[in-house]
């Protein structure tokens, strides 16, 4: 599938704005991910061609960053904190509850394409431990309990 014209135009603007094709690499990946949720293998050479860099150069950047998704993700991405403060406040129990409820492990997506679960540390919500950031707006939720967790999952698209 070729790049949608809107994205193509945005990428061109980006290169024009940055003035340097390499400088636009990371932003271009974010742009495509914002539009499509992730950056597919097909997109890498397409974006690279738009920028005037090689697919290798672009993928070197893409594969480095943890929040550039190179595999498809669900409509709602849950970044569950497994950091120390959350760990000290019951993060493991929340993790277990979440995994059994969704039936997936870290790095996996529910078969209905609704949720992707990723472990993260820390999410900058230590005062609300155990915490997670959820959804396209990366909303901070916490302290998570079995109840608040259910509410959050139900609200998700």
């Amino acid at each position: 599938m070729t790049l949608p014209p809107v994205l193509q135009a945005q990428l061109r603007d980006l290169v024009a704005h940055e003035g340097n094709p390499r400088a636009a690499m990371l932003e271009s990946l974010r742009l495509v991910q914002a539009a499509e949720g992730w950056v597919s293998d097909d997109r890498i050479p397409q974006i690279a061609a738009e920028l005037g860099v090689t697919p290798a150069e672009l993928d070197a950047t893409a594969s480095f960053y943890s929040l550039i998704f190179r595999r498809p993700v669900g409509r709602t991405v849950i970044l569950l904190c497994d950091g120390a403060s959350c760990g000290l406040n019951g993060a493991d129990a929340i993790r277990d509850a979440l995994m059994s409820r969704l039936g997936i492990g870290y790095g996996q997506t529910t078969p209905d394409g609704r949720f992707t679960l990723i472990n993260s540390a820390c999410v900058g919500g230590c005062d609300r431990a155990p915490a997670a950031v959820i959804g396209p707006d990366r909303t901070l939720v916490g302290p998570l309990t079995a109840d608040t967790l259910n509410a959050v999952l139900e609200e998700a698209p």
Binding site: I44, T54, A56, E57, L58, D59, A60, S63, F64, S66
Partner: peptide, 19 residues
């Protein structure tokens, strides 16, 4: 050369081509 690079991070680092 521009078709060879470093991919991944931490101990998953590898070197090669995009494909």
């Amino acid at each position: 050369g521009r078709d060879f690079d470093a991919f991944g991070a931490h101990d998953r680092l590898w070197f090669g081509r995009h494909e």
